[in-house]
């Protein structure tokens, strides 16, 4: 019998990703590794674990490391990809959180928002470098295959990234912001 499997998926919405991981766990496949696209699973008892996706907090007044802190509280660390952290716990120990804890959801959404915002800013910096440094450099250099390549490459790169930002990242940021707004409304 197969004891491991690999699935290829790409998620923008971490809520859907979490639901998908839990679905796989219910089918007897325990998630253990990902690189953002390829998801690796090991066989487990159907429904043995529940999963939660969370985002790392860099600066905090709490002197303890976030992962160490959560591990000491009974959640097991599964995997970290960029600042996205995957947690699991035995279903028998109960859910991660009381259903309908709005503040907790709000906090998690805010962390997701910051996560996507960071990639947005990072990509903008790359576009700026490509457009303001590489492109003029390609024009300034003496005519050669390399200078042509540099101009084309930088133009293509910045155009591609801008498209990605417009089509994928901006809608995600807007959706997360709307979600935060509706959660804040629920609080009052």
């Amino acid at each position: 019998m197969k004891t491991s499997k690999i699935l290829i998926r790409w998620f923008v919405d971490f809520d859907k990703e979490e639901a998908w991981l839990n679905e796989q766990s219910a089918k007897g496949w325990g998630f253990w590794h990902t690189n953002g696209v390829i998801y690796r699973f090991k066989a487990c008892q159907p429904g043995e674990f529940i999963y939660q996706i969370d985002f790392d907090e860099k600066k905090s007044a709490v002197g303890e490391d976030y992962v160490v802190f959560r591990n000491s509280c009974g959640d097991s660390f599964v995997h970290q990809w960029k600042s996205k952290i995957y947690w699991k716990r035995k279903s028998a120990d109960g859910p991660f959180e009381t259903e309908g804890n709005t503040v907790a959801k709000l906090q998690l959404t805010s962390k997701a928002f910051n996560f996507h915002l960071r990639s947005f800013i990072g990509l903008t910096v790359i576009v700026a470098i490509a457009y303001l440094i590489l492109n003029p450099l390609g024009r300034y250099l003496p005519e050669s295959v390399f200078s042509h390549w540099l101009t084309d490459f930088s133009a293509g790169l910045s155009f591609g990234i801008l498209c990605f930002q417009m089509i994928v990242l901006l809608p995600v940021l807007t959706r997360l912001r709307k979600k935060m707004n509706s959660l804040i409304k629920q609080l009052y």
Partner: peptide
């Protein structure tokens, strides 16, 4: 048993409370 706080929420809450000076190590 009505209210269960996840460790993730607790971490954020502790850091808030420490910043406000309502709790201390």
């Amino acid at each position: 048993g009505r209210l269960s706080i996840s460790a993730g929420t607790l971490y954020g809450a502790l850091s808030n409370l420490l910043e406000k000076g309502w709790i201390t190590p």
